Structure formats: C-alpha cells, structure tokens
Amino acid sequence: PEEVRRLVEELYRKGVSPEQVKKILKKQGIDEREIEKVLRRIG
C-alpha cells in the first residue's frame, strides 16, 4: 500500500538500515511482507 511505501522511503532516506526499517514498522503492526516488497523495489 501507498502508506507503507511512504513510511519505508522516509526511514530509508534518513539512513535507517533495511533491518531497522523492518523492525520499526513491524512494531507499528505493518505486515513484514509488505515492508520487504517495498525495500526490494527501493534497494
């Protein structure tokens, strides 16, 4: 979803590592598979 992409990109631009991005967003209840999809697209 758009909102997940925005959150991931925001953290990524701040220099947060992909592993940390995953941890942070998982705590917020976001599906890990969604996060990984976005990270793959960015990375």
Rank of each mutant, 00 (worst) to 15 (best):
E2A: 11
I24Y: 05
P1G: 10
E10Y: 07
L11E: 02
V16E: 08
E9L: 09
Y12P: 00
K26Y: 07
Y12D: 05
G43W: 01
D31E: 08
V16A: 13
I35A: 03
G43N: 07
G43M: 03
R33P: 04
I35G: 01
E10M: 07
E36L: 02
R41M: 14
R6W: 08
D31K: 06
L39Q: 12
E34K: 04
V38N: 11
K26T: 14
I42W: 04
E19H: 11
E3M: 10
K27H: 12
V21M: 10
R33F: 07
P1H: 13
G15Y: 02
R40Y: 03
K23C: 09
R13A: 14
Y12M: 15
L7R: 08
E34R: 03
R5G: 08
E32Y: 03
K37E: 15
L11W: 05
L11D: 00
I42K: 05
P18N: 09
R41I: 15
Y12K: 06
Y12R: 11
E32V: 07
I35M: 03
E34T: 13
E32Q: 07
V4A: 04
G29H: 04
G29P: 01
V4Y: 03
E9W: 05
V8P: 00
Q20A: 11
P18D: 11
V38F: 03
P18R: 14
R5D: 08
G43H: 07
L39T: 09
E36W: 01
P18E: 12
L7H: 04
R13P: 01
K37F: 03
I30F: 15
Q28F: 10
R40E: 15
V21I: 15
Q20K: 11
E32C: 04
V4P: 02
E3C: 04
E32H: 04
R6K: 12
E10V: 05
R40A: 15
Q28A: 12
E34S: 07
R13S: 13
R33Q: 13
R40F: 03
S17N: 10
P1R: 09
G15D: 05
E9A: 05
I42D: 05
R40C: 04
L7D: 01
V21S: 02
K37D: 15
K37V: 06
E34N: 04
V8W: 02
E9R: 04
V4Q: 02
E2G: 09
E10Q: 08
L25G: 02
G15L: 04
I42P: 06
V8T: 02
Q28S: 11
L39H: 03
E36F: 01
R5E: 10
K26E: 09
K27C: 06
V8K: 00
K14T: 12
P1V: 12
E3N: 11
Y12T: 14
K37H: 10
V4E: 01
P1S: 14
R40I: 14
E2P: 08
P1C: 04
K22N: 05
D31G: 06
Q20T: 11
G15P: 01
I35E: 00
I35C: 01
